[in-house]
């Protein structure tokens, strides 16, 4: 959905999305890295299971909720990527205890 400009000289950061290696850049938020990854990163809502992607990118809409390093319901648009970060796409309701 999004592509990087060529003049981007920031350091590469490797993250794992559902186990798959993705190259992000230092300073990306998780949500931005996911949208730039080319992978299908749609989550599904807890209410009806409808697919969603980030909508506001500024912490308002909560459509970017993801599981980061085992912790669920994080706002991907507010969390910076870190080397080795593990990200899971949330499908439906959050599981108890996560």
């Amino acid at each position: 959905m999004f592509k990087r400009i060529e003049e981007d000289r920031r350091r590469a950061v490797e993250i794992f999305v559902e186990g798959q290696s993705v190259t992000a850049r230092e300073g990306d938020t998780v949500a931005a890295a996911l949208l730039a990854s080319g992978l299908d990163v749609r989550r599904s809502t807890a209410v009806s299971g409808a697919p969603r992607l980030p909508y506001c990118m500024m912490g308002v809409c909560f459509d970017c909720l993801v599981t980061i390093d085992g912790m669920g319901n994080r706002q991907g648009c507010l969390v910076p990527v870190r080397e080795g970060m593990r990200i899971e796409i949330q499908k439906g309701k959050r599981e108890i205890g996560r």
Binding site: M1, F2, K3, R4, I5, G27, T29, L35, A36
Partner: peptide
């Protein structure tokens, strides 16, 4: 923040 352009 990330130099990303919408595509398609």
């Amino acid at each position: 923040s990330s130099g990303l352009l919408p595509q398609g």
